[in-house]
Structures are given as structure tokens and as C-alpha cells.
Design a protein around this nucleic acid. Structure first.
Lengths: 183, 183
DNA sequence: CCTTAGACGCAATGATTTTGCTTTAAGCTG
DNA sequence: CAGCTTAAAGCAAAATCATTGCGTCTAAGG
């Protein structure tokens, strides 16, 4: 039985807000459950019962922050749309804050559902871009191709190789995924 | 000043061994610093001072376990070599134990050096395979191409999308990276 | 309105983490 | 090789955090 409204919802909102506030005030590494609880006006045991531990709570908050806020912009053609999207994706994800969210989302995620959600967000955005291109009559790759060719390499480098990540690299990936050899 | 030998080295070895033993006896989730310390014959404060916390310790141990044990096998041609390597990579990394090590390696890794090491292991193995192919006179893609085209998609799915990972998928990635459309 | 059960608060208990100080021994230096 | 210097380990107390039982509150359904 789930209780989406009322007090439970208020507690959840207060705790999430407390995490975000404290993360920017004292830094993510200084967060503790009792600290968050005090700020949220809640007892620690509430957080432990509901989220299990700090990591799962942070994972929850991280997934919310990784949710895209807007639909991908329309720049006239598929190549421009994808390039712009990849560039924004890179900016958001490769920033220190973005990396931190990604790590948190992966971390406190026993069943992999939060990580799956992150991937679904990207796939959803790509669907939009590709459907728009198809509506223009363009021939488009499918979502899987772009996930493998653009999203995966970007994310791999964000997680495993902090170096060599810049806009030109993202552009190359998009061009390759679209079957071009250059812009 | 670093002290690579003597007591420090013995402590490090004992602690690493204790982690591996206990992980297989009681499960990775039941590990605690005091537990590891007792098994290693060491005081908890030693571990806290040296590694910071349990996650950084587990990250250290995980990277060791992710180190390849043998050079990639020789199967006659580049396509066969890469296919076999990708298949083995997938087997090892996508297993529950492999996923757990990858997560641990990424997790307790403030400066990203452990994650970088994992990536370097894969790159090193690919170097071997590609150099061998070049020695045969074959035209070969460079390491970056294979990292982007094969390793990154596999790792992305391992971390973010537990489904749809099987040998045929790995084969397709290899074929695409080598510029073929089919085997 | 009344019932029911999930979620929260409180408080006690146990475990982990931190910290100051002491002791050990690795690695230099003469 | 003996002595010195200092990083690293041990020890123990104190602080903080995690867990759990029990009572209360309140959302959701009848």
C-alpha cells in the first residue's frame, strides 16, 4: 500500500529539500542522516525506515535532479538537434555536480531501477529528437544506435576517463552515429 | 614519503585478503570496517586512517580484482580476437560479481584514479589485440574507436540497463566497430 | 463517520567512526 | 651497521551514527 499524499508526501519533500540545501551549503561529502533529518524537521529513524541509508536517499535525490527539465530544442535538422542535445548532455553530466549525481544515482541502487531511470530519460529525449526528424521526412537512426554511439561513449568517459571530454568529441560521435564522416 | 615495504605492506595485504575472504563468507553488504579489521588482525583506526572509509577500501580491492589475469588469446584474425575478447569482457563484467566490483571501484574513488585504472586495463588489452593484427598486416581501427564502439556500450548497459546484454549484442558491436555490417 | 494500517516520533541500545596520544619499525645518514 | 627521523600502527576514550521496539498519528477506504 502506497501513500502518495498527505504527511508522507510532505516528509519526502522536506527531506529532499534538506538534502539539496545542505549539499550546497556544507558539501555532499559532509552529509549525514542526522544532519539531513534535523534540517528537514524529522527524526533520523524516519529516514532510515523509509530509505534504508544515506546512499539510497542520495540516489533518490540524484535521479530527480537528473530528470530533464525541458524538451530538446528544435534547430531545424536532425544533425543540429542531436549536436545541440549531445552538447547540453555533456555539459550537464560532465560537470562536477553532474558526475556527483550520476555516482549517487548508481550508488544507492540495489535493484538498478534508478540507473535504469537515468537511461530512460536520455532515451526519451532522443525519441523526441528522432520523431521530429522523422516528421520532417528525414531518414533517422533508431534510438539504440544513438544510445550506443553517443550516450554510451560520453557516459563511459564521464565515469572512467575524466580527460578528453569536450564539445568537438561529442560532435564527432554524433556525426559518426549519423553515418557522416564530418560535419 | 611513501613506505612500500615492511609492516605497511603486510597490513595492506592482510586487509585486502580479509576483505576478499569476508566478502565471500558473509557477503559484500555485510562488510564493516571493524569486521575487516578483526579478520586482518588490525585495529579499525588503521583502516580509517589509511583508506578513509569502507568504500575507498572496497574500491581499492575491486580494482585489483578487475585487473586482467592473462593476455587476450590469439584466434587467427582480428575479428575473431576482438569477438572473443568482447565476449569474455562481457561475461566477467556483467556477472553479479563483476557488476559489484565495477560499482565499488567507481564508488569509493574521489579523484577518479581507480576508475581510470579500469579503463586503462581494457585499453591495454585492446592494444595487444590490435598490435597483433597490425603485425599480421591487417588494417586496424585505433584503440579509441574500439573503446567508443565496443567497451563503452557494453559498460553503459552493464551500469544503466541490466537487460538486453548477451553475446550476440557484443558481436554486433565488434562487427560495427570493424566496419562490417555482418559477421 | 469509523476502521485500518502504514508512516512517523521518541527513546533506549548497540555499533561505528573519530581523535589524541603512545609505540613500533622502515628508510635514511653518517 | 648503529643511530636518527618520521610515517604508520596500536590503543583507548569520546562522539557520532545506526538500529529497533513501542506508542501515536493520520491518510485512505469503506
Amino acid at each position: 500500500m502506497v501513500r502518495p499524499g498527505g504527511r508522507s508526501a510532505r516528509v519526502q519533500a522536506a527531506v529532499h529539500a534538506a538534502v539539496r540545501e545542505l549539499a550546497s551549503e556544507v558539501g555532499r561529502d559532509a552529509l549525514t542522516v542526522p544532519l539531513v533529518a534535523r534540517r528537514a524537521g524529522v527524526t533520523p529513524s524516519t529516514i532510515y525506515r523509509r530509505w534504508g541509508d544515506l546512499q539510497e536517499l542520495l540516489s533518490d535525490v540524484a535521479v530527480e535532479r537528473l530528470r530533464p527539465e525541458a524538451s530538446p530544442g528544435d534547430h531545424g535538422d536532425l544533425y543540429a538537434d542531436l549536436t545541440a542535445w549531445a552538447e547540453q548532455f555533456l555539459d550537464e553530466m560532465a560537470s562536477p555536480a553532474g558526475r556527483s549525481y550520476i555516482r549517487d544515482a548508481l550508488l544507492g541502487d540495489p535493484d538498478g531501477s534508478n540507473a535504469g531511470q537515468c537511461s530512460a530519460y536520455a532515451a526519451e529525449q532522443l525519441e523526441t529528437v528522432l520523431a521530429r526528424a522523422a516528421g520532417r521526412g528525414d531518414v533517422t537512426p533508431d534510438v539504440e544506435t544513438v544510445m550506443d554511439g553517443v550516450v554510451a561513449p560520453l557516459m563511459y568517459r564521464i565515469l572512467f576517463r575524466p580527460d578528453g571530454l569536450d564539445a568537438p568529441y561529442a560532435h564527432r560521435l554524433v556525426a559518426q552515429a549519423l553515418g557522416r564522416t564530418g560535419p
